[in-house]
Design a protein around this nucleic acid. Structure first.
Lengths: 236, 236
DNA sequence: AAAAGAGTCGAACGAACGTTCGGTAACCTG
DNA sequence: CAGGTTACCGAACGTTCGTTCGACTCTTTT
């Protein structure tokens, strides 16, 4: 099995034009909400994700956020540098959390197919539990510019790479032939599109949805007529 | 085979707050560019789609469009009522064209599977040939409000319904069991996500991509273990 | 008790926004 | 050639935008 490099390669250090150095902005995703400052910032990011999700990044105003957070317009700027910084922090936190959780779940999983299923379930679990932040993550994809944009895009590429490696392991294990790139991007399309239609009152929950989507995707990829000459040894 | 109602049901008449009645705004999608007015409007819509695609609807300014079109800011308003009207016209034209072309291609096609393949190929053909307008169509999904938004959403529902009917025909014909809703939305995810990654220099063209995606999707949907008791008669 | 910092605010800055108004040419129609 | 319509423009209107400034409370440190 290919050794997956889980480490996030950064093209540059985390964006450092910030005022102070606080745990939330520099620590790992898990250890949030330590100081009162970080707790309040996390609260603001939550409000901001809600508003960006509703009106889009460009369509949302700092006055909207000020109203939603019950704080003066000027007071907001104590917690971050700019509106762009806000989007950056939301996206970085979402990506970090989802990758960290994925690493955790993949630790004790064997079998390429099982690992792909875990990838999908992890994605949908976080996606549906944090719908607003995830819509902001996927919808405001090309919004960030320069340093912040480059850093987020690097994390995204890493996430893509993890999925690609999982699928190529699967391909090797089953002795099949298919385009890894096409498979990854088809899969991402299916699971990232969900934010446009999922209604918790009528649709399946994360676990069921992950199972259904995994079945559909894996059948599509596995049951190809074009197997390589050497068939896979076994799949246990 | 289910009779598919191709007619677009409008919840209300096409948005009628417009200044004049011109062919481009009221005629069918095919018969564009008759009068000089309509030709110039089509040109402006093309520029606008480019800019909305690049900077998003909210992020793009009328001054950007004025610059791109080589026309004064005030002069633009001779051709449409408002920025919102611009987005509405772009989206309506894209939807009308794609549905019209689909109707045409489905006319002489038999076999449920073949018809689904035609749906996918038609979508990708138009999608990749009009990438910018299609990105605006999919990305600025919830942007339009009130009357214009309701009309566009109605067309979208109709398009969704066409696809759902095709898939349920397929399910009946093959005697399978799967959720039509999930299949449609999974498929839409795959094919609408393309605008986020497709690079004409490295990726397959529309026809090849349609074939690959059709194979992947159809295998995923068809090769389910859970067939109904009655197996399909034949698939020719 | 004095100094320093953290947290918050009202008020304002200049810039950019979508849209409108009054006008000017050019063109068609009688 | 008079009169109306079409196409277009410069300049401005009122509004909203992201951000900053100076000041005012608290709380913590010296």
């Amino acid at each position: 099995m290919a050794q997956i490099n889980m480490e996030i390669r950064m093209p540059a250090a985390p964006y450092n034009g910030r005022k102070g150095r606080h745990a939330f902005t520099s620590g790992k995703a898990g250890e949030e909400a330590n100081s009162p400052f970080d707790r309040r910032l996390a609260e603001l990011l939550h409000h901001a994700a809600h508003i960006f999700c509703e009106k889009g990044y460009e369509g949302a105003s700092m006055r909207d956020l000020s109203r939603a957070a019950g704080m003066s317009l000027a007071g907001l700027y104590h917690y971050f540098d700019s509106k762009e910084d806000l989007l950056y922090l939301i996206q970085k936190h979402a990506f970090r959390t989802i990758i960290e959780s994925l690493q955790d779940r993949l630790k004790d999983a064997h079998g390429a197919e099982q690992r792909v299923r875990i990838f999908i379930e992890n994605h949908l679990d976080y996606f549906l539990a944090n719908k607003e932040a995830m819509k902001v993550l996927t919808h405001e994809d090309e919004t960030l510019k320069n340093g912040r944009g480059a850093e987020i895009r690097a994390i995204k590429r890493e996430y893509y790479k993890i999925c690609l490696d999982l699928l190529e392991d699967l391909r090797r294990e089953k002795g099949l032939e298919f385009s890894g790139r096409l498979a990854v991007l088809g899969l991402f399309g299916m699971i990232n599109w969900i934010y446009t239609w999922h209604n918790p009152r009528v649709d399946l929950d994360a676990g069921e949805l992950a199972a259904e989507m995994s079945n559909m995707f894996l059948r599509g990829v596995l049951s190809t007529g074009k197997a390589k000459r050497k068939s896979a040894k076994a799949n246990a």
